[in-house]
Nucleic acid binder design. Structure first.
Lengths: 128, 128
DNA sequence: TCAATGCGTAAGCGTATCCTTACGCATTGA
DNA sequence: TCAATGCGTAAGGATACGCTTACGCATTGA
């Protein structure tokens, strides 16, 4: 997850991912969508995205078609960001309750290991 | 949002945020929780978190109490990550439909500007 | 077989990031 | 008033990052 966060912090790489969300593209096509920097620079960004599994290259002749892989993004939400979402929005909290009620607990790990420390302090961490 | 992503990419800063999710803490107390680096280093990390609004300092005598502010994290989900969540999980998509049906459109902007480009290609961007 | 195309990578440079040590300022209690 | 405490910041150095230019390799079509 650490590398994934570092990967998506760069705005150029987020732009590439946004492009691939529309459709798979060749490396050259991606580079044409980012004209303000050289093609090798884009290739290096693609290498970073590859290294964390966010894109998957597939050779087709002398072309290389890149496809988006969203899966590595999920831990960012599941293991980190979602716990803060409860603080910025009551709506998501309601959502969670609705889902849990309608699903009836189907082993999704992120329950019940909730902060086993006795709530010693104020625990007021609002959304500001 | 760019600065916020850069802020949370550092594992030490995420650790600080995780600490403040439990309860507000003084700068010194935070530093004690991160013993593997010097106190000024922690102070600099706090400065970064301050600069993007993720923590709020409040002087109390010669102590400075830091409180978590989760609000700057919301755009990461709303304006970026949530659009990828649809690719990694059908469950969240179902959730969204449930919410929208039960709320009946209460002006939450993130509807209806959905990709107005005519679905020109394959648009197969799966979760891998 | 040979030039052209598509792509990746190595080398090098400027800059940003993150740490340390040293220092300065405000607040507290004697 | 004066030492002690809590905290922030400046200065400096090591390392990581992002870009460019130059090059190498595989594939294609003449």
């Amino acid at each position: 997850m650490d590398g994934v966060l570092a990967a998506i912090t760069d705005p150029t790489r987020r732009r590439i991912l946004d492009l691939l969300r529309e459709q798979p593209l060749t490396a050259g096509a991606i580079a044409k969508h980012v004209p303000e920097m050289s093609r090798p620079a884009v290739s290096q960004h693609l290498a970073v995205l590859r290294s964390v599994g966010l894109v998957e290259p597939r050779r087709s002749g002398r072309l290389v078609v890149y496809t988006l892989c969203a899966a590595p993004l999920q831990p960012i939400w599941d293991h980190w960001l979602s716990r803060y979402a409860e603080l910025w929005s009551d709506r998501l909290l309601q959502l969670k309750e609705v889902v849990e009620a309608q699903e009836g607990c189907d082993a999704q790990d992120s329950h019940s290991e909730r902060d086993a420390e006795g709530d010693k302090g104020g625990r007021r961490a609002d959304g500001c």
